[in-house]
């Protein structure tokens, strides 16, 4: 079993990303959407947290990053997906946990 986790809040405004990472198991995927995409920029205060979490596949929803003007600032190792990629991630994982 592996879960797809979605995180939709900025890590600078809420502890949602932490709550997710506390319970995300190795082999799961974390997809950053909406304001959650701000976690994905390089050099930010949570970049190390993402970099040091081993075994979790991090993705960011490209349209949300683009809308917020951060598409060119995304950290390495975070895969960019579009909505069709979001759909694929849902299909590829056994269940989806939305960290609201």
């Amino acid at each position: 079993m592996s879960l797809l986790h979605t995180v939709n809040k900025s890590p600078f405004e809420s502890n949602t990303l932490d709550a997710c990472l506390n319970l995300a198991k190795s082999g799961s995927t974390v997809l950053l959407i909406e304001d959650g995409v701000y976690a994905a920029t390089s050099g930010n205060a949570v970049a190390d947290k993402i970099k040091n979490t081993s075994g979790i596949n991090f993705c960011v929803l490209g349209p949300d990053a683009q809308a917020r003007g951060i598409e060119g600032k995304l950290a390495e190792g975070i895969k960019v997906v579009d909505y069709e990629g979001f759909v694929d991630l849902v299909a590829e994982h056994d269940a989806v946990q939305a960290w609201l």
């Binding site: 939709n8 909505y83 979001f86």
Partner: peptide
């Protein structure tokens, strides 16, 4: 909130696939 917008985009993509 963006929730409904995200859901609409997701729905369109899922149907397209």
């Amino acid at each position: 909130h963006q929730a409904a917008d995200s859901a609409i985009q997701f729905t369109k993509a899922a149907l397209a696939k």
